[in-house]
Amino acid sequence: MTKVRRVISIVVENESSVLSRVAGLFSGRGYNIGTLTVAPMPNSQRSRITIATQGDERTIAQITKQLNKLIPVYEVVEHNEMVEKEMVLVKFPLTESLADIEVLCEAYNGTIVNVGVDMCIGMVADEPCRVKHFIEASNRFSPIEIVRGGVVAIER
């Protein structure tokens, strides 16, 4: 069966062991975690975990069902129609042209968020493939460090 990429949101009880239950389910059953993002949901006792994963359709169906069996899991959403964003921070040396770096960031709806004595930091938050392209383009400016976050998604 062909592999598909899928983003899954998991609404969980906000308790200390819940992340290990979710992550352990993935590792124990051999499912793939591409990215993982977790944060408490505003005004509630719950957290939202967003996982980007890959697998054939049967595996994806299993992931959803197995997640639903975990006791502290309230809801599992396999995203179809979604807005999906990922963030990246890139540190550039100021031996490169600040203006060129700024143009690059803006081309990807990002900005320069910090300028220091000998380095600057650019930020982009966009769809994962756009972030990937931005990182590729950044390589022209000798990046010192690239920090990429996981996916967050919201159903349209």
Partner: peptide
């Protein structure tokens, strides 16, 4: 009784 068993 376990939906995860179905079509596993």
């Amino acid at each position: 009784i376990d939906p995860a068993n179905i079509s596993k």
